[in-house]
Nucleic acid binder design. Structure first.
Lengths: 206, 206
DNA sequence: CCGTAGATCCACCAATCGGTGGAGGCGGGA
DNA sequence: TCCCGCCTCCACCGATTGGTGGATCTACGG
C-alpha cells in the first residue's frame, strides 16, 4: 500500500486528487497540506511514501519545501504536480530533489502510474518537460545568470540607468556594462529591453 | 434546481468541482468541457443556468468563450473560476460578460454560494478581485495601452530596435518613438527596459 | 599550485535612444 | 457638427547604450 501526502493550496485540486486516488486500491491518501510549510510538517509527522507537491503556493513554495524534505526525510519521494511547464520551474524542482515532474493536465490514470513509479524510486517526467530538460542540458551554464547578474538585470528592469545601477550596487559603471554584456550573451539577446523580457520569461525577475 | 456546466481543461479540477457540487441538493452538474470551444458547444446544446469557466485553456480561452456565449445564449450566466487574479485577466473577463470572478483557492462553500448568486443574476467577485477593480476604475485610461502600443511594446520586448519595429509594422521610425513616449507616460517609466518590465508585471506581454 | 569562474574596472567609438514640441488625418461619440 | 482619442510623421540634440578587447583580484577545487 502506497501512502500518499497531497500538498496543494487549492482545496478544489486537493479534492480532485483525493477523488482520483479513491479508485486506486494500492494507494491511500494519508494527509493533505495547503502550503509548503504545512507540507513539511505533515510529511515529517506522517512519513508517507510519496508526496504530491504543487509548486506555486503561499508561505513556502514547492521547490523550497522539496529541498527541505529531501534533507529531513530522504526516504520520502517528492513528485511535483504543477500547472506550469516553464523551463525555469523544472530545473529548480529537480535540483531540489523531486523524483518526478507532472503537469496538472495529466490524466488520472497517468497520475496513478506516476505515483506508483515514484514509490518504486523511478523518475517520471511529463513529455513536454522532457523536451525542456533536453534543451537545458545541451547548453550547460548558458541561461544561468549569476546572483550579481540577476541583481543588475533586476535594477535595469526597475528603470535604472547603468549609472544608477552602479550607485545602487556601490560599483563602477563599467562593471554594470560588463555584467550586462554577459547577461546578453547568456540570454541570447542584444539589448536591455529584450534582456528584461527574457528575464521575465525565465522567471528570473519579479 | 440550478443546472451547471463545468469548463476547465484539467480533468482533476473538473473532478474536484463535480465532487464539490455533489453535496449541493439544489445544484446539478449537467455537463463538462475541456476547452473553450467545447464549452460553447455544450453550453448551446445544454443551455445550463450557470457556466463555471476557467480562463487559461487550450483551443479557445475562457475570455473568448465567454464573449461568444454572451452573444449566442444571453440567458446563460458565466462565472469565471481561475487561478489567476491578475489585473489584466479580471477586466477582459468582465468586459466579455462574466457575471462573477472567483479564484480557485475559494472554499467549496463559497463556490456554491457564488453559483447560486450567479443563477439569480447577482455578481460575485473574489475579495482580491474587487481590490483590483477599484484600482482600475480610479485611474481610467491610465495604464491601458492601445492595441498599437501593445504591438510596439511586444516588438521592443522581442529585441527589436525602433527601426526594426517600424519595418515590422510598416510605419516610420518616428511613429515608433511617439508610441514609445506614450507607453512611457502610461506606464510611468522612463525607458524601454522598464516599460518591458511593467508590461510583464501587468501581463500585457507574453 | 594552477585553472576556472565570478566580480571588478578601463578606454574608445558608433549606434541608438529619450525629450521636446510640434503637425495632419481619421473615425466615433456628444 | 465638433471634439477627442488614436495613429501617423518630422527635426534636433544631448544622453545613454552596445561592441570590442582587454585587465586585475578573489575564491574554489582538482
Amino acid at each position: 500500500m502506497i501512502r500518499l501526502l497531497i500538498v496543494d493550496d487549492h482545496p478544489i485540486v486537493r479534492g480532485g486528487l483525493r477523488d482520483t486516488f479513491a479508485y486506486a486500491e494500492d494507494i491511500v491518501v494519508v494527509g493533505e497540506a495547503g502550503d509548503g510549510a504545512e507540507g513539511i510538517e505533515r510529511a515529517t509527522a506522517l512519513v508517507p511514501d510519496v508526496v504530491l507537491m504543487d509548486l506555486r503556493m503561499p508561505v513556502l513554495d514547492g521547490v523550497a519545501a522539496t529541498a527541505t524534505l529531501r534533507e529531513r526525510t530522504p526516504d520520502v519521494r517528492v513528485l511535483v504536480l504543477t500547472t506550469f511547464d516553464s523551463e525555469s520551474d523544472v530545473l529548480p524542482a529537480i535540483e531540489a530533489g523531486a523524483i518526478g515532474y507532472l503537469l496538472k493536465d495529466a490524466l488520472p490514470d497517468e497520475l496513478m502510474r506516476a505515483v506508483r513509479a515514484a514509490a518504486r524510486g523511478e523518475s517520471v517526467l511529463a513529455p513536454s518537460v522532457t523536451q525542456h530538460l533536453m534543451g537545458q542540458i545541451r547548453r550547460p551554464s548558458a541561461g544561468t545568470l549569476t546572483d550579481r547578474e540577476k541583481q543588475v538585470l533586476q535594477l535595469v528592469a526597475n528603470g535604472n540607468s547603468n549609472r544608477d545601477a552602479a550607485k545602487a550596487l556601490f560599483i563602477g559603471e563599467a562593471s554594470i556594462k560588463t555584467h550586462l554584456q554577459h547577461i546578453y550573451d547568456k540570454l541570447g539577446v542584444r539589448d536591455r529591453a529584450s534582456a528584461v523580457a527574457e528575464g521575465y520569461r525565465r522567471r528570473l525577475l519579479t
